[in-house]
């Protein structure tokens, strides 16, 4: 009996979390005649939306742009955040104030921050370039990544490093031999989170790009016209926006159970 209740619980949980996403998938196969009518469970599936999306919309280009920007910005985030988080966690640099300040950069409304950035980027010629967007996503993800990594570094026992230092190892050797292997799971999780957040970011992508560096989130809303909403092609777009993050998410969950313990308790 208890088992039955458990599985019913799991089923409800999965239904709530998965159904809306699954239904997007179903919608993407609906022809225009089936989209705007009271929902029918059975309908004639069509690939028309997929064909439309790939022939008429620059979705492949947008996916490529988003990919470039996401990967490079995440790489830079890690380059910036890993040493910083290590410094905060190990040496308590700035006594927490600096870490808190880093955290607050995300408290600023993006709509307001966007305007000075826009003027700044215009003068530097960075509008509608991949580099510009990479820099913005670096700003966007940096605080979160630093904070998360701070937690992971805290988890690594300081005693290990002290012992190594007493044995005469240099800083870099300690980092390479001791710290780096231990931070790996945490760094992977942070990376995946940054990838997902950058991939899904909309506002900066819309503000700072036009045709060259346009990202996929921006492309998605292009289906919402003033007279027609193209639900079908939009569903296709959504599917292709989600797929990469699904893969990333799947990859992450293997690490997340192992790694996300923030150093507070050690099992």
């Amino acid at each position: 009996m208890k088992r039955v209740i458990f599985w019913v619980g799991v089923a409800v949980l999965l239904f709530v979390f998965i159904f809306p996403i699954a239904w997007i998938f179903v919608t993407s196969f609906k022809g225009p005649a089936d989209i705007m009518v009271p929902t029918r469970l059975f309908f004639k599936p069509t690939l028309a939306n997929y064909i439309y999306e790939f022939y008429n919309m620059p979705i492949l280009r947008e996916l490529l742009n988003t990919f470039i920007v996401t990967v490079f910005s995440t790489f830079l985030v890690m380059v910036v955040s890993l040493p910083a988080a290590y410094s905060f966690a190990r040496f308590n640099t700035g006594y927490g104030h600096l870490l808190f300040f880093t955290l607050t950069t995300r408290m600023f409304p993006p709509a307001v921050a966007a305007i000075p950035f826009f003027i700044f980027f215009k003068n530097l010629g960075l509008l509608d370039t991949h580099i510009g967007l990479i820099l913005l996503y670096l700003y966007f993800n940096m605080s979160f990544a630093t904070f998360l990594l701070y937690g992971f570094f805290k988890e690594i026992p300081e005693e290990l490093e002290h012992a190594a230092m007493v044995d005469g190892f240099g800083r870099l050797t300690i980092l390479r031999k001791i710290v780096f292997p231990l931070i790996m799971p945490g760094a992977v999780i942070t990376t995946v989170f940054c990838l997902i957040f950058a991939w899904n970011e909309f506002f900066f992508g819309y503000m700072f790009t036009r045709t060259v560096a346009r990202t996929v989130s921006f492309g998605l809303i292009s289906h919402w016209g003033s007279v027609v909403v193209q639900w079908g092609p939009m569903a296709v777009g959504v599917i292709f926006t989600i797929l990469p993050t699904l893969v990333a998410g799947w990859f992450m969950q293997r690490f997340i159970v192992r790694g996300l313990t923030f150093g507070a308790v050690k099992g």
């Binding site: 996403i21 239904w23 997902i196 899904n200 998605l220 993050t245 699904l246 799947w250 992450m252 997340i256």
Partner: peptide, 28 residues
């Protein structure tokens, strides 16, 4: 099961808000 529970987190919030409107539409 745990992996599937993670799905909503990875979906683009913008995409999802557009799709929610479609799902919550009174008529269709």
């Amino acid at each position: 099961v745990r992996g599937l529970c993670l799905l909503p987190l990875v979906v683009s919030p913008l995409a999802m808000s557009l799709m929610w409107k479609y799902f919550l539409e009174p008529q269709f």
